[in-house]
Design a protein around this nucleic acid. Sequence first.
DNA 1: GCCGTTTTCGGCCCGACTGTTTTCAGTCG
Length: 578
Amino acid sequence: MHNAVTNDQIADVLDQVADLLEFEAANPFRIRAYRNGSRIARDLTESLATLSADPERQLTDLPGIGKDLAEKMDTLLTTGRLPLLEEIFERVPQSVLSLMRIPGLGPKKASVLYRELGITTLAALKAACEADQVRALKGFGTKTEEAILAGMELAAAAGERIYWADADRIATQLLSHMKSCPTIEQMQMAGSYRRRRETVGDLDLLVDSEDATKVMDHFGRFSEIKSVTGRGETKMSVRLESSLAIDLRVVSTDSFGAALQYFTGSKAHNVRLRGMAKARKLKINEYGVFAGEKKIAGRTESGVYTALELPCFPPELREDREEFDWAANGAMPELVDLSDIRGDLHMHTTATDGKCTLREMVEAAKDRQLQYIAITDHSQRVTMARGLNPDRLRRQWREIDKLRKEVDGITILKGIECDILEKGGLDLPDDVLAEADYVVCSIHYGQNQPRKQITDRMLEAIEHPYTSAIAHPTGRLINRRKPYDVDLEAVLRAAAEHKKLLELNAHPSRLDLDDIGCASARSHGAQVVIATDAHTIVGLDVMRYGVMQARRGGLTKKDVANSRSWDDLKKWLGGRTR
DNA sequence: GCCGTTTTCGGCCCGACTGTTTTCAGTCG
């Protein structure tokens, strides 16, 4: 018996099929269909297993999934395998996929290497390059051979995405460097960085200037650059010491908006947009929107969208998920903004594993214009963090009472991050929880339990009369262990029903509810609370990353609980809190 | 392989750059 097949696993298989079909030079549109299917699986707000099992619905309801792909997904769901992939592996060795990961080496060239030299592995390719065999092939030359060898070293580091927050540091440095170039009219970062994806693969800088040469020369003097990997009339590519790639594109004022739209993407969003343009007998490219020969938009980004009778989508939403439907139905969400956030409901102090005192945290929150905060140290089960037992917790609350009298202009809530115990149930007695203003429940132990058990533990915590919120139900650190396995849909349903908040961890290295969970939360009517889980004063500053995640998930001010005043929120939570 | 205001066939986004050619294919975004 195989384990439950996840959307990501299905997406990976479909991607492999697409890669291998490309290698075999299959119909490019068939390849695109598989890639599209992969993206749909990855982005879906619920598990394909759930959707497939629902008698009311079908996989073919998903736009882009037809009869064939639906069948293949079902096969994967029920057997964990895909006969088509196994058939392809009989013709093509799996390891050729690694060849295509080398920058500059696509399916066609990889295929030639395989057919002519029988190369299937990176090691064999390296040997062939060093033996000067590759340059002898038709369509290859010495430059290609050199590029392959250089690319191989790069291949390990390349393709790795970095946190948005890290990309932000580099982007800020770059923009500040470019500012001193006098021939620049305007410039903007585009790409996934502008779309605020939680990780960024490379940076795209778009510049409006009449003197591309000067701009590119100036760009080339950015101190972090290790090598220039390409330079043409209007486009230049470099790689930084950190191996991050940056693309620069120089356009004229006339085209800046169209180029900004184009290079912001996403690719899927743009493909969709181009299709819509075509249906209106318009052509759209990075220079503008054209009716025949006549350019009808391009100077501004909003102009491009207006020409297609579309709203200027916030970049965070440009993923070809639901944004076009929202636009068509006049239901574009007004996304939540950092300035909407009035309170932070999760933070720690020196009482447990925080690095700053209660007073320091309160002062820091005031500095950040927060109207209310909840102090939520760990409960006793978290021994590593010296979690609070009832006595110590009540002592902290008396301290808060004192502080309330000394500090005005901010509401300090008596809270607790109460553990959900391994065997179920909460880590503190009901009479203690009843005295708290705010109780957020977390799982720190027993994270490897089966899905059903984890889900039941969470549901019990949600149904408990004195709890206010449930912490990061899909919480996972990027590049770290896999998240614990939980029926997120059930958690969201219960949270909505029992009026409990769903905590979205704002830290940039977390992919908590990210886009997927947010969309689900919205569809269930569950309220999200964006929280920093700050352990230090500067920890409070990650709130903006949480807001970014929420925006990508299409959440409005109304969906985010801590954009309300505490009085309103308290009312919404009902009689449980004081 | 998907899809339908060109609806069951015949389309499917578009351009820059590179290296190899000697007029263009492959790769990338």
